[in-house]
Simulated scan of single mutants.
Amino acid sequence: MTQNPAAMPDASGFFGPYGGQLVPPHLKQAMDDIAAAYAEIAKRQDFQDELAQLFADYVGRPSPIFHARRLSAQLGGAQIHLKREDLNHTGAHKINHCLGEALLARFMGKKKVIAETGAGQHGVALATACALVGIPCEIHMGQVDIEKEHPNVTKMRILGCKLVPVTRGAATLKEAVDSAFEEYLTNPTDYIYAIGSVVGPHPFPMMVRDFQSIIGREAREQFQAKYGRLPDHVAACVGGGSNAMGMFTAFLGDESVRLVGVEPSGEGTDRPGRHAATLTMGKPGEIHGMKCYVLENADGTPAAVHSIASGLDYPGVGPQHSYLKDLGRVQYEIASDKECLDAFMTLSRVEGIIPALESAHAVAWAMRVAPTLPGDRHILVNLSGRGDKDADYVAKVLGI
């Protein structure tokens, strides 16, 4: 029986055939404890009130919707609007779930919060949230990403977290996840692994989605208030998929709204190891405690991946995204490194907004599609983060 997309997951953490808890028995108990604690705290009014207060007074929510008039006019066709998650404290959507996870860790009496980070936005946001609630924080980050995302590395150290460089394998996001998970396994009783996306074993895909769903709830209300209607298209970049699920969830029941997730095709989907288009080129498999679409080698191991955006180079994807692909409710498209760089520079110079390279993938799709649509159509893009962290890297790549 097909699940209602708006009422997922089931009691076992499955979104259709995807998700679950593919973990050792001793770790299953730890996951169940987190699920029980989350179920309890989510019902408490004092928790909801504290989170709402922090969203308003600490993060700066609600984030606005901006009509990119000059970009829309330059492209011709549909109107492009941006949900400005880049204006949040710490510069991205990540702070939304990091505050929730830090409050949960405090509620559970945990002694350390562990996490991975790719582009560093999750690391900065979690280090920020842990400083706020007074819990030690340890972030694992691939050495390649440490060198690429130096501004975020500096911020994490200033915020007081312990930064663990990961040099194995490709030394990027997947290896950072592996390393952080291994450290968590040394003491799951006292530690909590604050997963940075809608991935991993249950309850994390559900929990991170719930904390991020504030994006879509705000956007839906704001767009209707401004324009008296819903957007025709809602787009977001997809790596693990947290910003996209945060945006899409509020619109799942609106059949008139086309939902589009944009994956990184990197240097080309015809080049194995040089893209990270998991939903486009992968197949159902298992990774990091969940069933989902996976990019695999011939022997079934996770494949090497690449994206110019460090936060998107992951060979798996959230289980709910996997199910929404199978259902056809969300259309998953791709954007290349070249298109991403073009969108990054165009948005910067036409609208004065420097986007994160991750977010620029969704902007690239909107820029590609807008000219093919009538002028009375509206595309709403989740601008999931700002490009401060990427500015030096892009300048070096483009010779600016």
Rank of each mutant, 00 (worst) to 15 (best):
Q21G: 03
A115M: 06
D178Q: 10
S322T: 05
R329P: 11
I95W: 09
Y38C: 04
A360K: 02
G387R: 00
E286F: 10
A78D: 08
R84C: 15
M31R: 05
A180Y: 06
G289M: 06
D392M: 12
T154K: 08
V133H: 00
L75W: 08
V208L: 13
S213P: 01
Y184T: 04
D190N: 14
H378T: 01
A276V: 05
V208R: 03
P165K: 04
V381N: 04
G169C: 13
G240A: 08
M290I: 01
K291V: 01
G200E: 12
Q320K: 15
A125W: 11
R44C: 05
L312T: 02
V330E: 03
G200S: 05
A36F: 05
L82A: 11
E333T: 12
R69I: 06
G273A: 09
E286G: 03
N88F: 06
V257D: 08
D390I: 01
T278L: 05
A370Y: 07
Q48W: 03
M290S: 14
I379T: 09
P355G: 09
Q53R: 15
M31K: 00
P272V: 11
Y293F: 15
R209D: 08
L324Y: 11
R157W: 00
L104F: 11
E116I: 11
I65E: 10
A303C: 04
D145E: 14
N152W: 04
Q121Y: 10
L104Y: 06
L22P: 00
S213D: 05
G160N: 10
D313Q: 07
Y227L: 14
R157G: 00
D299Q: 10
G300W: 12
T186Q: 14
D145W: 11
S197N: 03
S336A: 04
M156Y: 09
A356H: 01
G285T: 06
G169P: 12
M367I: 09
L230Q: 11
A131L: 08
T189Q: 15
E339K: 02
I41G: 05
G142V: 09
R69N: 08
T269S: 02
M31Y: 09
I214H: 06
L99H: 07
R217H: 14
H275A: 03
